[in-house]
Design a binder for these strands. Structure first.
Lengths: 146, 146
DNA sequence: GCTTGAGTCTGGAGTTACTACAGACTCTAC
DNA sequence: GTAGAGTCTGTAGTAACTCCAGACTCAAGC
């Protein structure tokens, strides 16, 4: 319960793998509570900060935006954990991720195709450049990319 | 060869689907050459601008960064088109896209798993929050996410 | 007690690729 | 000549950091 160890920002950074500047940034934007300070003004972090920062980093690795992380942290902070709400945030994010995968796969296909044509090209002109300069409208390309 | 029609920025925006502000932005950062001006200072675009802007938009749809688009445009501008260099830019970008797809798929898996556990959960605590608060280090999560 | 070097502090600017104003001016049609 | 739509410039905001300068603090060694 009580927090005895207090570590400086550099140590927290090493323990979590986060950047020092990022830690200060998270404090500035209110994701990480302001820690205690030494007499000289150094930030002194306890285990709660360590846990919270790890939470943030794990959520970020999973692609949650800081706004989503904020929401998740708020939900996590409530002692009675509203699992349904957490699930809703995660599910919305999952849909987002799926959409991005679909978009990237479409891009991958077009890129791979064009590069392949490039490789087979005779050399007088570049199929990649041609494809980009071609008169078909970007909206058609966007359709293609879904 | 000669350009007779000259259209205002709004018309160019409608023709390409680009935003007016974006067109001015592309000019500011040097992707689109500064067009002629009317006596009152309005920008007047010709067909070359139209083609170039479409090129940029198609490349952006395929996920090329503006830096990459710049490189592609430079290569396209050379009369003798260095197909190999174009292919290199595109291939590098394709690798990037593939990497992002892999990352997102890993995210998708972890998210879907955790949400599934969430659905099956008894209700006393949230598996999603637990997973994020779990003591395993973010670097392990990152490994997981490849 | 003093010095040294590493660590930390704040505030501000830079990054990417736009987007969104405000307030002034221009163009076209009636 | 005037109304209303279009355009102009310049600045600031967005996400999520990252980097920097110049000042200060801390711990260790002598």
């Amino acid at each position: 319960m009580e927090e005895t160890q207090r570590i400086a920002i550099g140590a927290l950074a090493t323990h979590t793998g986060a950047n020092i500047e990022t830690i200060r940034y998270y404090e500035r934007v209110g994701l990480l509570p302001a820690p205690a300070r030494s007499s000289g003004g150094y930030r002194l972090y306890g285990t709660n900060h360590l846990k919270r920062l790890n939470f943030i980093r794990r959520a970020r690795v999973l692609g949650f935006s800081l706004a989503e992380v904020r929401k998740l942290l708020t939900l996590a902070d409530q002692r009675r954990r509203p699992c349904a709400e957490v699930r809703a945030v995660a599910a919305a994010h999952l849909e987002d991720v799926k959409g991005k995968i679909a978009d990237l796969k479409a891009m991958e296909r077009v890129l791979a195709d064009t590069i392949a044509r490039c490789e087979a090209g005779s050399g007088s002109h570049c199929p990649m450049i041609d494809a980009l300069y071609t008169a078909s409208s970007p909206s058609r390309w966007r359709r293609l990319a879904r």
